[in-house]
Write a protein that binds this DNA or RNA. Structure first.
Lengths: 110, 110
DNA sequence: TGGTAGTACCTTGTGTTACAAGGTACTAGG
DNA sequence: CCTAGTACCTTGTAACACAAGGTACTACCA
């Protein structure tokens, strides 16, 4: 409510792009959650654990990503995620959508 | 659910940008709902009435837009919307956010 | 041995919101 | 006066990000 509406709108803008960005990050290299969080913070897309875990599960159950367990020297084992074939195809489509969208909006912002 | 997930992701991408785009459209010129819907369709951002009306009410109650009634020759009177001072300020901030975001994502898509 | 810190996984509850569907009411033309 | 076109709005539903809380593994050290 109240006067945090600007920040609320900002996070709303990020929201819709989240899933897309996570697919992008995973497509670069197999990674696990903490790493993903770190990379997204670097690119201005704040996410928290409570958002990321359910999202990864969703992508898994949609067959877009898969994971392997890997031991860690500094704690419990990690789930390393990678895109499946279907995930790569979906990502390619989303990139097109993104290009179209960002072009449309850029034309409005002038 | 099932295999509409691509389209679902697409619409999810559009979602977060919707409010921003509506502010953009209104900033160009005072308009009313049907006109807004038309313009958004031209730029790939599909919206429906059931989404737009509550959204406009929300923007109104946040003090970002205001409206005047205007008679129409082809039906009931229309609410013509325009940005308030606060709306313009907010939009300027959102434009910055958009620039940052789109730059970040573009750097990932290469 | 057992206590603390760090890391990693996951779940539950809440509020927001887009959308589908349905509803009211005004104008104009036949 | 009845239909078509236009414009406004509401209700119910499902998805989703986030906050908060929880479990469990490793390593270090007293």
């Amino acid at each position: 409510m109240h006067e945090e509406s600007l920040e609320q709108k900002r996070s709303q803008m990020r929201k819709g792009l989240l899933e897309f960005c996570i697919l992008l990050v995973i497509s670069e290299d197999r990674t696990y959650s903490t790493d993903i969080l770190k990379k997204l913070k670097e690119t201005d897309l704040l996410v928290v654990e409570g958002t990321l875990y359910p999202l990864l599960s969703r992508l898994k159950s949609q067959g877009l990503v898969e994971y392997d367990w890997e031991e860690s020297k500094s704690g419990p084992p990690r789930k390393y995620y990678a895109l499946t074939k279907k995930g790569k195809e979906t990502l390619a489509e989303l990139k097109k959508t993104w290009k179209g969208l960002s072009a449309s909006i850029s034309s409005l912002t002038d």
